[in-house]
Amino acid sequence: MKLGDKILYAGLSIIFLISCAASIFFLRGSPNDGDKNGANFTLEIVSRGEIIKSFDMPDLSETESGSTIELREGGGFNILSIEDGAVRMVSSDCPGGDCLRMPPIWSDGRVIVCLPHKLVIRLRRDGNGEVDAVSY
C-alpha cells in the first residue's frame, strides 16, 4: 500500500467514526426525549419539509392489520400500509419506485422517502402527538 493510501484510509476512518457519533446523536433526538416504554410511536408524514399529518401508532396498530393511508402530495399518489406495527410504502406512481423498495420501518428514527414526491415518512418515539403545548 502506498503512503497516500495509508493517509487516505486513516482520514476516512476518522470521518467514519465522526459520522457514526453524529448519527447516533441525531437518532437519539433532542435531550428531552420522553419515556422508553415500547410502542408509543408517532407516525409523521412530511411533505416538502413540513409535517402534514401525524398519527399515534398505537391507534393505528389496533385497527385491523392492513390499514392504509393514502397520500396525494408532491404531485403524486402514494399508499402506505401499516401492518403489525410496521409501515411500508405499497404503492406509488413515482418514477423509479425507490420508495417501494425501502425496507419497512417500525422503530424510532427510521424513514421511508419518496424523493420525486418530496415525501418523508418517519416514526418518532414520543408520548404526546408531538406538541409542545395545547391551546384551549
Binding site: 408531538e130 406538541v131 409542545d132
Partner: peptide, 21 residues
C-alpha cells in the same frame, strides 16, 4: 419552530385535534 396544539373540543384537556408551528 414551537409546535402548538389546538385542543380537541370533545377529548380530554391536553389532547389536540391539530397543531401549528
Amino acid at each position: 419552530a414551537w409546535r402548538i396544539g389546538v385542543q380537541h373540543p370533545l377529548k380530554p384537556r391536553g389532547e389536540p385535534i391539530c397543531s401549528v408551528a
